Amino acid sequence: MPLFKRNPFGHYLFIKKWIIRFFGVISHSRYRKFNSLQIEGSQILRDLPDSGVLFISNHQTYFADVAAMFHVFNAALKGRDDSIKNIGYIWQPKLNFYFVAAGETMRAGLLPKIFAYAGSISIDRTWRSEGKDVNRQVKNSDISNIGKAIDDGWVVTFPQGTTTPFKPIRRGTAHIIKTFKPIVVPIVIDGFRRSFDKKGLRIKRKNVLQSMVIKEPLDIDYENEDVSDIITKIEYAIEQHPSFLKVLSVKELEEIQKEEDELNEQRKFWRS
């Protein structure tokens, strides 16, 4: 790889590689030592093409979810079966890997900005900003950047746009699927909310069973299925349809919402 080669967003790949290596080593024990990450579906990843893939997932923390996916994806591509043992897989990571994140999150401090260099496609949310409901137009550049990333490699998006469970799927995800026609691979995660704080940086509880289930690609008729049909498929695929709501109690949902509100207050402080 040429020393000064860049990706489509102008990021130097050798810098991105060293960021992934450094934080990969630091974060590995969070899924292998302090907690136990159980994986299903690694073979599905090895059968995917190198680009044109969109992963959709439920969301539990700001950063720990994506960091775990960096580990799982790279381990699978190096031949590990449902395991992230032997961290040597991180030495030559997949560099055309991206994740969609809220711009205000990725700009809130030095550490998020470093994480952003590792692969963030930062977008301005149209429905929420600094803890308040808003209503603004979608930026064409945001959509274009997501399409550019899909064309270049693998992209992870969290179609609810929030870490609060059972929130509605944002229609923009379905529009992206219809527009760019990627292979859509669902992922269901669990245990991250119990083991990490909201940002996913601090270990809140040890010996938690974390899980990541990679499912077969969705069967989507890009031309004839409408947005609402695709949204319903996404809800069931990532197990966020209202029919799954019985899994969490009202008290648990209230606690999650309280954490979300507290973090929004912290965001205001960071930005001030």
Rank of each mutant, 00 (worst) to 15 (best):
G52H: 01
Q160Y: 04
G119C: 04
N74M: 00
A174D: 04
P93M: 02
F244Q: 08
I19G: 00
K204W: 05
N135Y: 12
R202I: 10
E260R: 03
I177W: 01
A108Q: 02
K199S: 11
Q137T: 15
I214T: 07
L3D: 12
Q60E: 11
Y222L: 03
D65N: 09
I214H: 03
F73W: 10
N264Y: 14
P93Y: 00
I19T: 04
F115P: 00
R194S: 15
K85S: 10
I177A: 02
W18D: 07
E235V: 07
W127G: 01
G10C: 14
I15S: 03
E223S: 11
A76E: 07
F63G: 02
E130F: 15
F180L: 04
G41R: 07
S144A: 13
R202Y: 11
V184C: 04
G200Y: 11
L111F: 11
R21S: 09
R30Y: 13
K78C: 11
I84S: 07
I87E: 10
I187Q: 06
I90G: 00
Q257E: 15
R6H: 08
E260P: 00
V213K: 14
S272M: 12
D47V: 00
G52Y: 00
W18G: 03
R107V: 09
I56S: 12
D82E: 11
Q210E: 11
D81F: 06
A174C: 08
P165I: 07
E265N: 13
H11T: 13
E104H: 09
L3W: 05
E255T: 07
S129C: 09
N264L: 01
G24M: 10
I231Y: 03
D82G: 07
L201A: 04
D221I: 01
F73N: 11
A68D: 00
D82I: 14
F244T: 15
F55H: 12
I20E: 04
V53H: 06
G147W: 06
K258M: 09
K204L: 10
D81L: 13
Q257Y: 14
P112F: 04
E40G: 05
Y31W: 00
D47L: 01
I123H: 13
L54I: 02
E225F: 08
D65H: 08
I220H: 06
S36W: 14
N145P: 05
E225H: 05
N264G: 15
Y31Q: 05
